[in-house]
């Protein structure tokens, strides 16, 4: 089937089998390997991307379902000038990653909800509970999302600061 995925603002016209999952289309057909597969059965959340702004498990969604949709992956998180997203800064500052395999999923699930978090720690807890990380024990991830949500609201396009160094 011929479809077009719009990923991080770029159009990718693709010819895919109906059964092809979104994660494989992103990784193999678009060459965007930042989206990881940790379980391929919808539990771990490593494959989380945003489809029309909603966080989805890219291993449970077919590429054809996203024809014409706007997909955002970890590669599209930084600003156009390459300025890291507040979540990326905060994850680094809080040691919220070790091996980094689960990280794109946590970043994207947080990116999809960041503006609605405000400073509600309960909401952050719910987000972090959605995905699996085997390295960090989650607490640093929780702290990082809190930090990004409270310190660096994404709406305000802030210039680099020394936080996180």
């Amino acid at each position: 089937m011929n479809i077009t995925l719009t990923v991080n603002g770029d159009d990718y016209p693709l010819d895919v089998e109906p059964r092809r999952v979104l994660a494989d289309a992103l990784r193999e057909d678009c060459g965007l390997t930042g989206t990881h597969l940790g379980c391929e059965h919808g539990v771990c959340g490593a494959c989380t991307v945003l489809v029309d702004g909603e966080a989805v498990r890219a291993c449970l969604m077919l590429a054809v379902q996203c024809d014409g949709a706007a997909v955002r992956t970890v590669e599209g998180l930084a600003g156009p000038d390459g300025e890291p997203h507040p979540l990326q800064r905060a994850f680094s500052a809080e040691h919220a990653l070790q091996c980094g395999f689960c990280t794109p999923g946590f970043l994207m699930i947080a990116a999809g909800a960041l503006e609605s978090i405000g400073d509600d720690p309960e909401l952050v807890d719910r987000l972090v509970e959605s995905n699996i990380c085997r390295c960090t024990g989650y607490e640093p991830i929780r702290r990082a999302i809190m930090r990004a949500a409270t310190d660096c609201p994404p709406a305000s396009d802030r210039s680099p600061t020394s936080e996180g160094s």
């Binding site: 989206t35 970890v74 998180l77 994850f91 990653l97 680099p160």
Partner: peptide, 21 residues
């Protein structure tokens, strides 16, 4: 000014890590 706490972070946080797959 250091942007990333760990050197690994620059690629692992931006989707540019390279795992075998």
């Amino acid at each position: 000014m250091k942007l990333w706490t760990r050197r690994e972070d620059a690629r692992l946080l931006t989707g540019h890590g390279r795992y075998v797959a």
